[in-house]
Nucleic acid binder design. Structure first.
Ligand SMILES: NC(=O)c1ccc[n+]([C@@H]2O[C@H](COP(=O)([O-])OP(=O)(O)OC[C@H]3O[C@@H](n4cnc5c(N)ncnc54)[C@H](O)[C@@H]3O)[C@@H](O)[C@H]2O)c1
Ligand SMILES: NC(=O)c1ccc[n+]([C@@H]2O[C@H](COP(=O)([O-])OP(=O)(O)OC[C@H]3O[C@@H](n4cnc5c(N)ncnc54)[C@H](O)[C@@H]3O)[C@@H](O)[C@H]2O)c1
Lengths: 219, 219
DNA sequence: AACCTATCGATATATTTTTATCGATATAAA
DNA sequence: TTTATATCGATAAAAATATATCGATAGGTT
């Protein structure tokens, strides 16, 4: 058992990429992989890959590289994949449904076992086998079932109030899709998915590109 | 017109946060705002806010702060919000539908005008008023309509092939939701949304937290 | 066995990003 | 008018991250 301290954020964000690639290569029968190969595939620098893997406690052999199985399992272990955790989702709308239907999140340890909404017409129904319950019950049920992860796909106006309920219930981590800055105690883990931010970065770069292209080819 | 060079990536990712907050404050009638207030609301450092705004070409007044209207408009301008761009989406499944139905992306400049799929049973139908066309047509139509942005919500096995079609048609930017590393020419803008990566970061931190808490309270 | 070479991993350097310091200035109060 | 102070913005320092260098070694080759 190698001791590892908290991974730097950038490294943490790259590890899933490594895992995805490695799983794919493994399926194709590859048994050893070098940092250079990984770097090449992902458009990174081999030194960086080596550093990341080393931070994650992985060791390779000169001239050979890393053992595929060891590597994949080691990395998955670090991210706690495969260690399924029950979760609740609040806001069973368009996005909520898409997430409820996406069973692959199971691979990453997320198992949504119930959804909550405040729309009478949705309550009692099931989506992909997952029951929709009234939002009022969420705090109590989190407490009773010792749920650790809450997913928020409610509208932005209600996201904070939903987060408060989750916190009241004793949630440990929130995966938030609503475009708001949630105010939560700092010991609670918060992961925001702000699609509009990603989109903004894209449109910014596109605008830059259009600008430069206009200068280059002004016809 | 202040000249601005390409923004650092971290700054670029924070600007949408500023805009969201500022729009909200503006609605409440606030006309001036200080870097300290922004920082406070978003849990950032006021120096960083000032730096970001300065990089974005915004200027404030001592003792007063920044003019709200100027600031919001200036930042939106930089991100090219409000400058609506037509886009195509490929893969009209669960996630694709959620995105097609999310009209707020219009605010950020994204206007999806057609969707493409390879599922016969979906072709010809409309989702939220947007027609679903056969994927084979996408390259040609991108060319004909001078579409600049392509959104990929197809399954991972087909994402690269869809990307290739978009590139063939002459797309400038791709917003990819499939969990694969797309190989594309480097002059094409690529923005990946890897929900599973975000989830991985969450589960990693959760695992860390559980570990330390187990040590602290071993009962 | 001696040598060659791909690859690791440790250490060093460079770059980027964040945080600190402090003088300058606009506004309000004395 | 003078003084006080909130806030900016320029510059400097520190911290985090990425990249470069290079000796060590496993395993193949002569
Ligand atoms: N759909 C997208 O593609 C998309 C993209 C980016 C961000 N988002 C964000 O994700 C969230 C969900 O988006 P959506 O498109 O699914 O919206 P939606 O309106 O389809 O769904 C929202 C759901 O939340 C429920 N809800 C409302 N108030 C609630 C409350 N207090 N407690 C529990 N449930 C409540 C509604 O009844 C509805 O079922 C929003 O915050 C949205 O801004 C969505
Ligand atoms: N649903 C989610 O919450 C979620 C979360 C994370 C990632 N994703 C990713 O987003 C993508 C879409 O997910 P989904 O849940 O909507 O899947 P889905 O199966 O519901 O939808 C995929 C759609 O793509 C279409 N398609 C298949 N091959 C195609 C091709 N060659 N060209 C065009 N269209 C094609 C299918 O007919 C289907 O309509 C996948 O890559 C998935 O891994 C989804």
């Amino acid at each position: 058992m190698t001791k590892i301290k908290a991974l730097p954020e950038p490294t943490l964000r790259r590890i899933p990429k490594y895992i995805h690639l490695l799983m794919q290569m493994k399926k194709q029968g590859v048994v050893h992989v070098s940092s250079a190969t990984i770097a090449d595939e992902l458009g990174l620098d081999s030194i960086q890959v080596r550093k990341d893997l080393s931070l994650a406690g992985m060791v390779g052999k000169p001239k050979v590289g890393f053992d595929m199985t060891e590597l994949v399992e080691g990395l998955m272990n670090i991210l706690n994949w495969g260690n399924l955790k029950e979760a609740f989702l609040a806001g069973a709308g368009n996005l909520g449904e898409a997430i409820l239907g996406y069973k692959k999140f199971n691979d990453y340890g997320l198992n949504i076992v119930a959804a909550f909404d405040n729309d009478e017409s949705k309550i009692g129904k099931k989506i992909y086998g997952i029951e929709i319950l009234p939002i009022e019950k969420i705090a109590n049920m989190i407490k009773r079932m010792h749920i650790k992860i809450g997913v928020i796909t409610a509208p932005p106006e209600h996201a904070q109030e939903v987060a408060n309920l989750m916190i009241e219930g004793g949630i440990w981590a929130i995966w938030n899709f609503a475009p708001v800055h949630l105010k939560i105690p700092e010991d609670i883990i918060l992961e925001n998915v702000q699609l509009s931010h990603s989109l903004s970065a894209l449109t910014y770069k596109l605008a830059e590109k259009i600008k430069t292209n206009d200068y280059k080819i002004p016809n």
